[in-house]
Amino acid sequence: MPKPTKGPRLGGGPAHERLLLSNLANALFTHGRITTTETKAKRLRPVAERLITFAKRGDLHARRRVIAALRDKTVVHTLFTEIAPQVADRQGGYTRITKLGFRKGDNAPLASIELVLEPVSSTPAPVSRTAAPAAAAPAAPVEAETTEAPVDETETTEESTPVAEETTTDAAAEVEADAAAKSDDAADSSK
């Protein structure tokens, strides 16, 4: 027997959750972007991505499975004819969730979920490495007697600006004299 998912469902029961996610998916495929709560957006993401994967397959069985989930033939037609060709070269990640802050009325966390329709770049992003990776070098076997290799010493000289001499003011001299007197008094009283 399949184990049910833990936690409360959106809208109350599992049937209501399926209908709610279906309506959210319909709105997402119709408008390209919708604003809803973070929880609904996170629950919608796998449903929408699975439907887009079926649409990319494009056969009759996939179309029937999407129609069973969405129940709106115009949205299914839009999904198969417009959205699927735009994401044909993308291997996944068809949606993007952006957090928007909190709703004014009930302080619920809002999020925007949108379709990612930009073409995938054929070249990966350049990776900048500051240091050579240490794992790339094979580890040398540890010998019983280790000889230390000479370390190249480099001389670094730092030139700094000369420090100006401190000038004492009458107030500073007075404070120092008071502090010295108090320390002398404390030393005398401790003896």
Rank of each mutant, 00 (worst) to 15 (best):
184 D>Q: 10
129 R>F: 09
68 A>P: 06
55 A>T: 06
76 V>L: 03
108 A>M: 06
171 A>F: 06
41 A>E: 00
141 P>Q: 09
86 Q>E: 08
83 I>C: 01
121 S>M: 06
157 T>D: 04
122 S>G: 05
93 G>H: 02
35 T>F: 00
48 A>P: 01
19 L>D: 00
9 R>S: 06
75 V>I: 13
71 R>H: 12
121 S>W: 06
157 T>S: 07
57 R>E: 12
183 S>D: 05
168 T>K: 15
88 A>T: 15
51 L>C: 03
14 P>Y: 07
107 N>D: 09
49 E>I: 02
147 T>A: 10
174 E>V: 13
12 G>D: 04
77 H>A: 12
82 E>I: 04
92 G>Y: 01
127 V>G: 01
93 G>F: 02
145 E>M: 11
51 L>Y: 00
179 A>I: 15
112 S>F: 03
52 I>E: 00
73 K>R: 12
120 V>Y: 01
174 E>M: 10
152 D>W: 01
186 A>Y: 05
178 D>K: 11
107 N>V: 11
2 P>G: 11
188 D>V: 08
83 I>Y: 00
99 K>W: 04
24 L>M: 03
139 A>C: 15
156 T>S: 14
85 P>W: 07
4 P>D: 05
138 P>N: 11
77 H>C: 11
38 E>M: 14
144 A>K: 15
67 I>R: 15
20 L>H: 02
85 P>S: 08
82 E>H: 12
31 H>G: 10
29 F>P: 00
102 F>L: 14
51 L>Q: 02
105 G>M: 08
92 G>M: 05
3 K>E: 13
122 S>R: 15
170 D>H: 10
150 P>W: 04
48 A>T: 03
12 G>W: 02
57 R>Y: 10
114 E>K: 13
53 T>W: 01
141 P>W: 04
152 D>R: 08
101 G>R: 09
143 E>N: 15
96 R>M: 08
143 E>Y: 07
127 V>C: 02
186 A>R: 14
3 K>Q: 14
73 K>P: 05
161 T>P: 02
102 F>M: 11
78 T>P: 00
63 R>I: 12
118 E>R: 14
106 D>Q: 05
52 I>M: 07
161 T>D: 06
82 E>S: 12
30 T>R: 10
130 T>F: 10
79 L>T: 03
158 E>D: 11
180 A>H: 13
182 K>M: 15
44 L>K: 01
81 T>N: 15
91 Q>K: 12
102 F>V: 10
40 K>S: 01
67 I>Q: 11
81 T>G: 08
154 T>Q: 03
